[in-house]
Design a binder for these strands. Structure first.
Lengths: 160, 160
DNA sequence: AATGAAACGTTAAGATC
DNA sequence: GATCTTAACGTTTCATT
């Protein structure tokens, strides 16, 4: 992760292509943006080293693997720390990393402290996650769920 | 998109690898899961055709391209349709597709109708999006924002 | 004009499919 | 075998002197 330069037209065009198809060949990318494959490669390496391109991934469609239920979950934490224990925030954050159902978690402003997106098989699975895992966690005071009725838009494309 | 079969151990192992690195060579994947490259390729093609693997993408780190502010945005729509107009829901959904700042949008249960995740450069940018775009939209009745203070977890890995 | 830095294209060998 | 990636090398461009 070297120094981050401003992105020019070509960088942005390359990013647009790779954000839609992370496996597009450098030849094809070059054809689209008006460069040779090796020139594209050099720029991509620069973008990777600058941390602009974080990584390449395969996206799995949740319904296709039996994950039919998504929920947004607001969590409020206990605020007081018992002196001999780790503080609730650090404890909660560490736990979140270990829960595979939680695909997204952010500290947010507002009444609640955290916003989570949770992906599970069905309501029984969700119920177990809430009852047996989340609400049993010592840092969690309260939570509030909004179930997803319909995915309108899901994209990994950043508006560059 | 052919018929979807149950996933066996090997399919799941392959998915685990490709969800972490969408460009891992079939040779290396095979080494990890105990298959030859060509056997891995056959399975991956099956998974692609079955729609389990939706696509491959490059993930761009938002901060690295100057997108420093993320917000969760709850939107409530007008419910009554003026007979000569398109219904508010369809109109809103179509608009969301055209707004690049909105990277995620779902119809949800609860007081509000939609949950959006919005990625922008800064507060000025967000303000403009809310004032000039969202609240001027004929379908939108009300909205409520939670700003992201800290990203705790962001993953595209589905818990298979 | 001469210089150096940055970026490009061509080529060819090696890796991957 | 065909395609794709990658490093090496020579060339072009452009800002600076």
């Amino acid at each position: 992760m070297t120094e981050l330069q401003a992105l020019d037209k070509l960088d942005k065009a390359i990013l647009r292509r790779l954000q839609h198809n992370g496996r597009e060949t450098y030849d094809l990318v070059g054809e689209q943006v008006g460069l040779s494959a090796s020139a594209v490669l050099r720029r991509v390496k620069r973008l990777e080293e600058a941390g602009v391109i974080d990584r390449y991934v395969a996206l799995v469609k949740p319904e296709a693997v039996g994950l039919g239920l998504t929920a947004y979950l607001n969590v409020r934490l206990e605020k007081h720390t018992e002196s001999h224990k780790r503080n609730p925030m650090d404890l909660f954050r560490a736990s979140v990393q270990t829960w595979p159902e939680v695909v997204e978690c952010a500290a947010v402003t507002g009444e609640m402290d955290y916003m989570l997106r949770v992906v599970v098989r069905d309501m029984a699975h969700y119920s177990r996650f809430i009852m047996d895992t989340l609400l049993k966690h010592p840092s969690v005071e309260d939570c509030k769920t909004s179930f997803v009725l319909d995915q309108v838009k899901v994209t990994t494309v950043m508006p560059v």
